[in-house]
């Protein structure tokens, strides 16, 4: 090996946060995974014909309200990022709290909807229906876990106007989750 080895530091790097871009990759992978599931669901429904979920009633009230709740959460999660960029920690924490509540409302509504529709595992539609909606539910729960973590760290003073990358990453993942729900809302609930 070369004789003159030293640990010369690299040039100062412009602030490009690892966590934000890594989350972008993860979000992209997750979105494609859920869209692939949705594609498989639609293909199966198409081959099944008119009998698909014919024994169940899918109401639109709950899915619509879920969509509205998630759309509102897109604004609140961006509010959290914007507030932190303005060094307003308390507003950021408040926004994260509201986002969490909206997420919890979404989950509550989803479980209620599942009971209302009453699709069973024994039905041929059951496994795919729950795989698509359940995977999205898992994504929403993961997003809420991120929000709780970030909220605690925000309250503890980990972030500032110059350090919002983790908040932005959480917002990016949350927005991806909402975008996926929009596709599920149309493909599963509206188009039935």
């Amino acid at each position: 090996m070369s004789a003159e080895v030293s640990s010369i530091p690299a040039n100062e790097q412009p602030g490009r946060p690892d966590v934000l871009f890594a989350t972008a990759f993860v979000s992209a992978g997750t979105v494609v995974a859920l869209l692939a599931l949705l594609g498989a669901y639609m293909a199966e429904r198409s081959s099944f014909g008119a009998d698909w979920l014919s024994g169940n009633t899918i109401p639109l009230t709950q899915p619509n309200m879920q969509m509205v709740a998630l759309l509102m959460s897109v604004f609140t999660v961006q509010w959290a990022v914007w507030a932190m960029r303005n060094n307003d920690r308390s507003a950021s924490a408040l926004a994260l709290g509201i986002t969490f509540i909206l997420g919890a409302a979404f989950i509550n509504q989803t479980i209620f909807l599942f009971k209302l529709i009453g699709v069973t595992e024994a039905q041929p539609e059951g496994p795919l229906f729950y795989t698509v909606t359940g995977s999205h539910l898992a994504m929403a729960v993961l997003g809420m876990c991120m929000i709780v973590l970030i909220a605690f760290r925000t309250l503890a003073g980990h972030y500032s106007a110059r350090n919002t990358s983790a908040l932005s990453a959480t917002a990016l993942f949350w927005d991806s989750m909402v975008a996926v729900y929009a596709a599920i809302w149309i493909a599963v609930y509206v188009m039935k």
Partner: peptide, 21 residues
């Protein structure tokens, strides 16, 4: 990275379907 992550994402979806069925 962009292509592999998204491709693997789709593949995992079908692995999941195989498991759920």
């Amino acid at each position: 990275a962009a292509v592999w992550v998204t491709t693997i994402g789709a593949a995992i979806a079908f692995v999941l379907i195989g498991h759920v069925l």
